[in-house]
Amino acid sequence: MAKTLLGKLFRVTEVPTPQSFLLTDTVEVCGRGLLYSLVNAHLRLDTDVLYLTTTHSTQDIKSHFMQEGTPGKLIVYDGSKDPCGWDGGEGGVLLNQPLPEIFSDRLTSGGTEDKKVVVVIDRYEHILCSQESLHLIRGLHTLIAKEAVEQVIVYCGRDTVEENTLTALAHIAAVTTHLLPSHPLTCKVVLRKPSGKVIKTHEEFTLTKELQVQDVRPVKKATTSLPPVENTEADTILASQTTFSLTLTEDQRAAKNKLLLPHTRVQQAGVGGQIHYTPDDVDDWDDDDPDDDLDI
């Protein structure tokens, strides 16, 4: 049984199940595998999943889930085909309508057959192209509050939405999972429990070919201090233009930090600052007042 937070969340063993789940990635790391892993876990637990896709077609999405013969049903709402109705609006989902209306066929009273469902929004920023941020957040609130909904999973890019949108999303999410570009892969997770307790973790993991989250463990302190991406890029570009090394290896950095400079040794010995001067035999001592010309 998973003891780490990431393991619990992606095996859906966290009790109670968080009602809203925000998963974000960047251009440097793709979180789609994690999203599919979470959806698979729900399907295995016999939970029906209402999946709103905005980039991949229905066939594409189904091809990643249907092979396992999971007990839960996957119902795909294809918002990639004709999101704004430019092609006549036939056969696809229009993304300019409020979120609860998109799923209204399954979420109206009696439509869910007393079985709770999971709603997936893949990807949030593409729906933002068709409606205002405020309306979308309001729609998300309504969805989360619905009794028939067990969890709403929102997948979006941290670098594709404006900061205030991301803040608003993180504010309403019970779980926020930021996937980071590192080796091995790591996630920064914030879980807000219904009791008000907030748990923050930074955990590393591996994603298998079967899209299972495995080998989850807390990130050691040494690996958490990743340099900012901009610096890494600048260093890479700069390093590629020089024939000598501009960076330090871990061993070199440790040796540099250990090195004690002579003045530091004296300071640490607690001797204090003293000036020793031994006059020369031929020193030219001047008996005149050196400040005579100042008329003090």
Partner: peptide
Amino acid sequence: GLLRITALDRNCPNQCVPLIQNFQ
């Protein structure tokens, strides 16, 4: 200048980190 080629097979969701090649 510099040419960076970033490749990510979108059909393999378990590939999370793209392959990056840097050239001048």
